[in-house]
């Protein structure tokens, strides 16, 4: 038996919105410690990793490790039927080919039940190594979204450069070019507005903006985002989910032919 109740059901809605343009099917890997999802886009260019600790759910019950394969289209349709303040309970019995969703309004007056057929999804798991990054930049998530959106007006690729002076995003195309510089903030009222730059080594990488713009669909999940960069390695874009999980996107850099 697997059962997990998320008090803030809107978090699940936001998670699905964040990935539905990148991946079509996902496997929920459920264990006693929590739920994880690893999925790649059809071109195998980027990778999504969601990790949710069991402490984010009340109750959480997972008697045996179980993998639940779901089509995102169906999941998206069902989850959209929940109100933002509903709690969402996910239930699956061993040996059945269905997953159940129960939505409950805060006062308990309205409950809705939906069922989705499980799918057998053949997904390849990649081992993500522990990486010591050259630079780790934490910034407001809406700021990163804005930069990616603005830069994609100019070109298909964005150059991200971290130095002791800060982080620079640049793009160029037929129309012209643009550069945006961010420096570490000194005095900021709210922690979530802070730009924090940890620099071990200067780093200079190029990424496809198409994917970064997909990643920024996760902006509603968190006021902050962390970019972890290392030369010749995939970028890791992390959105924390409350204090119990995270959504990470990995994107390989574009490299010279």
């Amino acid at each position: 038996m697997f059962e997990a109740r998320l008090i803030q059901g809107s978090v699940l809605k936001k998670m699905i919105d964040a990935i539905k343009d990148i991946v079509t099917d996902i496997n929920l890997d459920c264990s006693s410690t929590g739920i994880s999802v690893q999925a790649m886009d059809s071109g195998h260019v980027c990778l999504v990793l969601i990790e949710l600790g069991s402490d984010g759910f009340e109750p959480y019950r997972c008697d045996r490790n179980i993998t639940l394969g779901l089509g995102l289209k169906a999941l998206s349709v069902v989850v959209r039927c929940a109100n933002n303040d509903d709690s969402i309970t996910i239930k699956a019995q061993e040996g059945t080919d269905n997953i159940n969703f129960v939505f409950e309004s805060p006062n308990g007056e309205k409950t809705s039940q939906f069922e989705i057929k499980l799918m057998d999804i053949d997904s390849e798991h990649l081992g993500i190594p522990d990486t010591e990054y050259d630079s780790v930049v934490k910034m407001p998530s809406h700021e990163f979204q804005r930069i990616c959106r603005d830069m994609s007006q100019l070109g298909d690729s964005i150059v991200v450069a971290c130095t002791k002076d800060g982080i620079q995003f640049s793009a160029s195309g037929d129309m012209g070019s643009g550069k945006i510089n961010l420096r570490q903030s000194s005095l900021v009222d709210k922690e979530e507005d802070q730009i924090n730059i940890e620099l071990n080594d200067p780093v200079h990488l190029t990424f496809a903006l198409r994917y970064l713009n997909y990643f920024t669909k996760a902006t509603p999940l968190s006021p902050t985002v962390t970019l972890s960069l290392k030369a010749e390695s995939p970028l890791c874009v992390t959105y924390p989910i409350g204090d119990f999980g995270s959504m990470k996107f990995f994107l390989a850099p574009k490299i010279d032919d």
Binding site: M40, G43, H44, V45, C46, L47, E124, H125, L126, G127, I128, P129, S157, T206, A208, S233, P234, F250, A252, K254, I255, D256, D257
Partner: peptide, 14 residues
């Protein structure tokens, strides 16, 4: 020009 390499070249299959 620059090209995009797939994830397989960075992360090993489990």
């Amino acid at each position: 020009g620059k090209t995009q390499h797939p994830m397989y070249e960075y992360f090993l299959k489990k």
